[in-house]
């Protein structure tokens, strides 16, 4: 973990910056092209603003109503992050329990699958009824939406240990705790991060869906309000903000993954 050959790292970093931009160029070009197409269609066909605004009208909202979006952005972000932390922590702990206790796995895994089959949209009103109108139901919805992919991946990751490593640990008379701590957790990290990247975007969806139901703050509430009042430019700007939050969370998770999982490039997988 401690020293990943500094000289080699520095050498690739310098030349790779240009390479990264070159790799991103197609995506940037495509995005700009699509925005342009959107603008041309809206303007060219004379589509009224309340049905679909053009990109510049959306941009104008960010300038005029920036403060409104900003104060509604914070609660959504807090709910999403809290849900992310809660849902993933429970999933990881449950996965550790399942891997060490077959009975627990057989008893509760099917229940977890069942809960996952209920559409989150259907659970949301129930949770609002139970938990009231504060942050709690939103956090729980965001947590629920994160929970299942992480549970499934983590159980798989904890079990996908190189069998020779387990034999090695047995020769060393290591106990279950040591096997978990020294082997299983690390070798599950690539699986865990695959799930966390999914969760980093879905937790935002969870928070927004939670805010659709009788909430008067947050990006979700703003979306509902803008829709009912035909304030389409505001609606679009809010949606873009929510997407931006999800993309930021995803990027951050990927960044942490690259920092933590340095070995998966070859070795095990």
């Amino acid at each position: 973990m401690n020293s990943p050959d500094p000289s080699a790292g520095a050498e690739t970093r310098g030349s790779s910056r240009a390479a990264v931009w070159r790799r991103r160029l197609p995506a940037i070009t495509a995005a700009v092209g699509l925005l342009l197409l959107w603008h041309l269609i809206v303007v060219g066909f004379g589509i009224p603003t309340y049905i679909a605004p053009n990109p510049f009208q959306v941009l104008q909202v960010f300038i005029d109503k920036g403060a409104l979006i900003w104060i509604n952005f914070w609660p959504t972000m807090v709910e999403a992050m809290a849900g992310f932390a809660l849902g993933n922590s429970i999933a990881v702990l449950l996965a550790i329990w399942f891997v060490h206790n077959q009975l627990a796995e057989r008893a509760f895994y099917p229940i977890a699958v069942f809960i996952n089959t209920i559409p989150i949209i259907a659970i949301a009103p129930i949770l609002v009824l139970i938990l009231g109108n504060g942050y709690a139901p939103k956090v729980v919805i965001a947590a629920l939406i994160c929970f299942f992919p992480t549970l499934v991946n983590m159980v798989r990751g904890l079990k996908a240990v190189n069998p020779q490593m387990l034999e090695l640990m047995r020769v060393l008379s290591a106990n279950d705790w040591e096997v978990l701590w020294k082997i299983r957790l690390q070798s599950s990290l690539p699986f865990l991060f695959a799930a966390l990247k999914i969760a980093s975007t879905t937790c935002v969806i969870g928070a927004i869906v939670g805010e659709w139901i009788g909430s008067n703050y947050g990006l979700g509430a703003l979306i509902i309000e803008a829709t009912y009042n035909f304030r389409s430019p505001l609606l679009y700007a809010t949606v873009v903000t929510g997407a931006g939050l999800a993309v930021a969370a995803f990027t951050l998770t990927s960044f942490v993954e690259r920092r933590v999982v340095k070995w998966s490039s070859s070795a095990v997988f």
């Binding site: 973990m1 401690n2 020293s3 190189n162 020779q164 490593m165 034999e167 090695l168 640990m169 020769v171 060393l172 008379s173 290591a174 106990n175 040591e178 020294k182 082997i183 690390q186 070798s187 990290l189 999982v261 340095k262 070995w263 998966s264 070795a267 095990v268």
Partner: peptide
């Protein structure tokens, strides 16, 4: 001590930490 056909090193541990593993467990 057992030496396997493929080295079965822990890929997240450096050389020295792999060698230390037996001192840390059991």
């Amino acid at each position: 001590a057992f030496v396997f056909q493929d080295a079965a090193l822990l890929p997240w541990r450096s050389v020295i930490d792999n060698v230390r593993l037996p001192l840390e467990v059991g």
